[in-house]
Amino acid sequence: MIRTLRIIFSSSISYLFVPVRMKAAAFLKRHYLKLLQFIGFLLLWQIIIVLFNIKEYIIPSPLAVFSALFNPEVAAAYLWGKQISATLTEIACGFVVSAFLGILIAVIISWSSLLRSIVMPLLVFFNSIPKIAMAPLFLIWFGYGIIPNALIAILIAFFPVVINTTTGLNAVDRDLLDLVNYLHAKRWQVFIKIQFPNALPYIFSGLKISTTLCVVGAIIGEFIASDKGVGFILMDSQALIDTPPMFAGLIIIAALGLGLFGLISIFERLLIPWQRVELA
């Protein structure tokens, strides 16, 4: 395991030293059109609001949303820092546990057919329960707060990790097994040297799906019962028909999801450098 990781890491490190400024310049060059599009979209939005005299309680102007986010006098009321840290904690806990649990379960069910026959039916059963429907129970068990929301995130986010990892662990070219089996490789050697590295791309695609679901899970948790978090602000503002913070909340949620997705993608590049070669 350590050797595999070392092999993978040593090759990743070099990637870190690609000059950052060059990357930024290249990024701007490649994406300036999208940036312009985005600015154009905001302008259009503002113009339409003014032109058609749309009421703020239906759709706020981009300026009002901006103000809800960044104007200290307005934004202070929403305590964004506190809300974001609560939601982010739920998402992060949910994700870390989903990833760990998902990979662990996948390893277990790929390891032996006996374990598979015990764990798989349970898993399928649990997955067929609508997870959101369990939220009220969590409320009874854990009360308000971070834990029940993180749990909902875990419940809906760990399954894709299990499925993807299992697929990856089993998607080994049979000939690759011959390659180590003729040397009488032990079961764990086959696992560590062949199956696990082979599964890495699959694991990452599972993790990416899981990040999105973690965000959804955390927000739904906050909708159902909470006293903080971005989802809480959405519900709270809804009662007051105060739309600018609702839009602001949506933007924050999207940014959180995107950020996490990006983070996983960076890890993916670092851990799977051999795929970069193919894409280049």
Binding site: I7, I8, P197, L200, W274
Partner: peptide, 9 residues
């Protein structure tokens, strides 16, 4: 077939 492991140098 060569059967090299993609993830190894």
């Amino acid at each position: 077939k060569p059967l090299l492991l993609d993830w190894r140098k």
